[in-house]
Design a protein around this nucleic acid. Sequence first.
DNA 1: CTGGTTTCTGTAAGCGTTTCCACATTATCA
DNA 2: TGATAATGTGGAAACGCTTACAGAAACCAG
Lengths: 360, 360
Amino acid sequence: MRVTAKQVAEKAGVSMATVSRVINRNGYVDASVRARIEKVMAEVGYVPNRTAKNLATGRTRTVGLIITSLQSPYFIRLTEGIQDVLENKGYHLLLCNTKFNTKIELENLQLLREGMLDGVITSTGNLTHEVMLGLVRQNYPMVFINRVFDELKDEATRAGFVMGDLHYAGLNVTRYLLEQGHRNIAVLYGAANSTSNQFRLEGMSQAYAALGLRVRPELLRCVANPPDPSSGLNDKEGAWAYSETLELLQTHPEVTAILVFYHPMLTGIMQALREVGRNVPDSVSLIGFDDFPLAPYLDPPLTVMDQPVYEIGRAAARLLVHKIEDATLRVAEPIVMKPEFIIRRSCAPVANRYPALAAE
Amino acid sequence: MRVTAKQVAEKAGVSMATVSRVINRNGYVDASVRARIEKVMAEVGYVPNRTAKNLATGRTRTVGLIITSLQSPYFIRLTEGIQDVLENKGYHLLLCNTKFNTKIELENLQLLREGMLDGVITSTGNLTHEVMLGLVRQNYPMVFINRVFDELKDEATRAGFVMGDLHYAGLNVTRYLLEQGHRNIAVLYGAANSTSNQFRLEGMSQAYAALGLRVRPELLRCVANPPDPSSGLNDKEGAWAYSETLELLQTHPEVTAILVFYHPMLTGIMQALREVGRNVPDSVSLIGFDDFPLAPYLDPPLTVMDQPVYEIGRAAARLLVHKIEDATLRVAEPIVMKPEFIIRRSCAPVANRYPALAAE
DNA sequence: CTGGTTTCTGTAAGCGTTTCCACATTATCA
DNA sequence: TGATAATGTGGAAACGCTTACAGAAACCAG
């Protein structure tokens, strides 16, 4: 039924070892013999079995990518970058979308131990910090995006790190808003505890501190926290953001600017803003993190702090492949990429607010 | 180094067969023995090797998903639907993003033959029609989305089909525009030859025919055709659409409505429209295919013909899993889902156009 | 012509599971 | 009580490859 290398070998009058050599183009094999074997393979329609190869070599040429959502243009672009290099290097991508569900994340990480994955790229928060540490210490090839492990500072592992300069991003965005007179800046972010949010928040604090001010914690809202019963609802994350924004605006009408750390929330935020009659940018300024194709076409065009996400993805994949293919590689220096601020029309100085209100 | 079932067996004083039985919870095994084995497994940190299991069982519990782009909300939502059921059934997803590159698609389809994939869900055009047919006839479990094979009409294969009623979609959208007085309706679509585009176009023709009119082929533009040298360019598809739209509007200024079959082109289209001063909807009406979260927040909010994409994805995945797990299943009836028309503000009657022009 | 290298090929031992078969023990029931 | 069925366990052959290792032949420099 299914043709095996053994049958090819018999039919070509050679040993399996030789067949294997022509398949993998390694070792010596006589040109005429190679031709004969290739002819037989074509005739009988031989296709080498990958699972057998995987077992024999202990490798699968498959890497896992763990992200929390497919609705975020950030993860999409990241995935594209990763996949473009993987494909180029002959690796495949197993996609794990956790939807902020730790259980799903753990199951997929386990595939590393089960030998089904050669390595993993993770772009999630720190809900699974200990597990990650364990895996890294067992020397599985892993690359973390926007995440650091202080515990590993002096250990030589096979872990790699790629990140945007989120501190810088948070700092500059906040500085920009402060200069425009904003003092009550709200932040809506996705996963609680994610290190990327922490970095941005630290940058924010620094900008505040420079003016002798402090971040108001009650204006920091996390929306993706609840492990949701996975209703197939479209725009679920937008829905979470909607109610959170409504609540925020009711209890803190003094907010004049909102930082959106996680784009799937944008719809809900805009909806809420619309409903309470706070228009952008006159009544509330809006800044998104990371650019995306439709950002200039929103109403109003969205000002964003962009990150070279595609390049981050590429760097991560390249790094991971290196670490997979060279087990001795122990470079742990994080690769850091600078963000870029793209000003469009969703921000306005606080001073502009009053005429707008007066007009009503 | 790595712990195997054999070592667990020795340490627990049983045979490998018994260990296998407790891992897979099949066959009989005494409760006390089971407990002992589980204890040993926990102690030594045993993790079963998946690739060995894959080889032994001839299955991988992994299915491939082939799409043409990650930039389209359609594919994203489809992927979510698929993954939600796969995850639920204990399957993993290998993602193949072809970027309209047939070579990539073929390589990934080959994984089916190589035994690395239990099945495949395809949502691409018909560039690989013959290959697909070959695979189907070799009885690999496959599910096709928005695609049919007349050749298979009377064959009992393991192929499955899920589709939106695209004919209906094309028909009704066109009818809507015709009623508003539009007569020169342009269409911008992604992959050439994709069967989904053909269905929509047929519906369109029918609507025209009902008024004794005919589709103007020169107003039908395909944009994703060129197998692009994969510049990591963000919004590449938007860029294609941009130049195509520009050209279209110059050579055919009589166009008063544009149907967008493929959303990644939206940015380019809007950009082009803006530049030539044709504003939406007064000067040109715009209708997109398939809804997406940001559609109501564009400028203007986009009218769309929606498809229950998430449900299509779910149905496809369920079907595929059925076909994988029951090799005798030979139901080939396509599952068809009705679309829904969502009217927002990107369309206007042609009559509205003149005041707008007069105002300039 | 000799010793050493390079080229070529085969044998066979893995890789770590699953599963068929056989056999032994225990429960069930007329 | 004996036949039959249900339960529990082990041996060992797959699954289809890769890859030492070893040996043979060809080549080459001195």
